[in-house]
Nucleic acid binder design. Structure first.
Lengths: 203, 203
DNA sequence: CAGCGTAACGGACCGCGGTCCGCTTCCATT
DNA sequence: AATGGAAGCGGACCGCGGTCCGTTACGCTG
């Protein structure tokens, strides 16, 4: 090897770097997609519109984002990261500093607000029923967080399943349904979460 | 009016009768669809195949069943009715004769088995995220049943929301996910249900 | 700076769900 | 049995998500 050879293995966790045209197209596509979603609603934005708006071919959109739900997830990424920072390292009662039960309560309440706020995109980001919830990194983060808090709160038994039971309550289509069809307010939904948590940790 | 005039108003609750050719096509379509689903899986059956197999045009299928999910719901109708009879009028502990908490526990356990058994069609019968759970007569029956039992069990507070919280645990894609990705057995899922119920009724 | 291997590109193409509308069939009435 | 009108029918048609593959452009190497 020549003396100027750069490292051949990418650093663990950093994705292989993108070619410049690819990177440019990704940001243009996200910009256009965000604009179109804000303008017409996630429901009414087609992949072809996004491609045309960014001045690229349709194939490029699919190469970058895999499928429609991948594009939507990419759009949600920033909001999701912000939310994660809040409950992982933010101020109490959501972040560290409060007791586990209090943090658990706050987590659900915040998640309900978050999901309802971006419901349009969360609904559009849903995977088909067969692969729902699988390969979903944010969900894994939420699960670890809830599981840890449950443990710290002294909950006993099948914590893995208990965690999933709680997450089921925070499903966006479910919250959306209760909010629209049953006319339930976020506060009411939050109270429901608190009650569920209390019941489950034996408070 | 002539003396032989039949009643002009259909009896409340009985749908306006179907023309003979329409009725014949409905049964043929359901037969063919059931066969194709059994043969290739609900996932891999197209509406056109069903139409062709029944020797009718595609438009006819959609006229009868509205959309793909409508056809799947129709296929599930028989199993669903049977299940409803079991928990509404069948023997204890599922049917009347046991205490409300015991019936509630049995209901969830039976539902988990039922949904996993027919998961293929339940997954295919799912509505898009925006209208999920809305206009779903079986769900309304389940909700009334669970709500009634919760009340009889002496649960207090927001029974409507409590009912929905419990139903969220019985969602087919959720159960399917836990069963496949997390490798959880029906028994384990049943235990999770029981724990949830006990926590919520304050047992 | 020329050459080259590879990633990226673009848009024609495909399959499926769903719609539309001119034609057919049923059946109530006389 | 004839007839009129409504319910039903069929299949061409449309739009969208997703794929394929020949072409293009990036950037590394010498």
């Amino acid at each position: 090897m020549s003396p100027t050879t750069p490292p051949e293995l990418t650093v663990l966790g950093s994705p292989p770097k993108e070619r410049s045209d690819a990177a440019r197209n990704r940001t243009r596509l996200l910009d256009v997609a965000a604009r179109l979603v804000a303008e017409h609603g996630a429901q009414n934005v087609t992949m072809e519109q996004v491609a045309a708006g960014a001045g690229v071919g349709k194939g490029t959109v699919f190469r970058r984002f895999g499928d429609r739900t991948g594009l939507m997830r990419a759009l949600l990424d920033h909001a999701e990261k912000t939310f994660q920072r809040e409950f992982l390292t933010g101020p109490p009662p959501l972040g560290p500093g409060s007791g586990p039960v209090e943090r658990l309560r706050a987590f659900g309440v915040a998640m309900i607000a978050h999901r309802l706020r971006y419901r349009d995109m969360y609904l559009a980001a849903e995977e088909p029923a067969e692969r729902r919830y699988a390969d979903d990194p944010p969900r894994a983060v939420h699960a670890r967080h809830v599981g840890t808090l449950l443990g710290a709160a002294g909950a006993t038994g099948d914590l893995e399943l208990l965690t999933q039971s709680l997450l089921a309550y925070l499903d966006t289509p479910f919250l959306h349904y209760l909010s629209t069809v049953h006319g339930m307010s976020p506060e009411r939904l939050g109270d429901g979460w608190v009650r569920l948590v209390d019941g489950v940790v034996g408070a």
